[in-house]
Computed example of a mutant assay.
Amino acid sequence: MKKRVGVLALQGAFREHRQVLEQLGCEVVEVRKTSDLDGIQGLIIPGGESTTIGKLLRIDEMGEKIKELGAKDMPIFGTCAGMILLSKTIVNSEQYCLNLMDTVVERNAFGRQVASFETDLSVPALGHKPLRAVFIRAPYLREVAPNVGILAEYDGKIVFVRQGNLLASAFHPELTPDHRVHQYFLNMIDEH
Rank of each mutant, 00 (worst) to 15 (best):
G78P: 02
V5R: 06
F160H: 04
E153S: 15
V134Y: 13
L86Y: 05
D120C: 04
A13Q: 04
M1Y: 12
H179W: 11
I189M: 11
G149C: 06
I45A: 10
H182R: 08
K65N: 01
S122L: 10
E191N: 12
Q163M: 06
V144I: 14
T52M: 11
A71W: 11
G42P: 10
I40Y: 04
V114W: 06
L86F: 02
K3Y: 11
L141E: 01
E68Y: 02
L100P: 02
P173F: 03
G39F: 04
N147Q: 13
V91M: 09
S35F: 01
E153K: 15
E174F: 06
L85N: 01
R107G: 05
P46L: 07
P139N: 00
F110Y: 15
G6Y: 04
P139I: 10
A115T: 13
F160N: 00
K55C: 11
R32K: 15
I59A: 09
G164E: 02
C80S: 02
K72G: 02
L175D: 08
I45Q: 02
A138Y: 01
R137C: 02
Q11M: 03
A133R: 09
L8K: 00
P177W: 05
H192V: 14
G78S: 07
T79F: 03
R15H: 14
E22L: 05
N187C: 01
F171I: 12
R58L: 14
V28A: 07
G25M: 06
A170P: 05
T176E: 07
D178G: 07
F135E: 10
R32D: 03
M62Y: 00
E191L: 11
K2M: 13
K157F: 09
G111K: 09
L24I: 15
A170W: 09
I40G: 06
P173I: 09
P75W: 04
Y96N: 08
V31M: 06
L8P: 05
V104K: 15
P146T: 04
E94N: 15
R58K: 15
P146Q: 01
A152Y: 05
T79C: 10
A133H: 13
P124K: 08
R180H: 02
H128F: 15
Q163G: 00
C80W: 02
I76P: 06
T52E: 11
D120Y: 14
G111A: 10
Q95W: 15
I90F: 12
L56K: 12
H172P: 09
V5N: 02
M188E: 13
L167N: 06
N92V: 01
V5P: 03
S87K: 09
P173R: 09
R162N: 13
D155N: 14
I76Q: 07
L24K: 14
A152F: 03
H128Q: 14
E143I: 09
F135T: 08
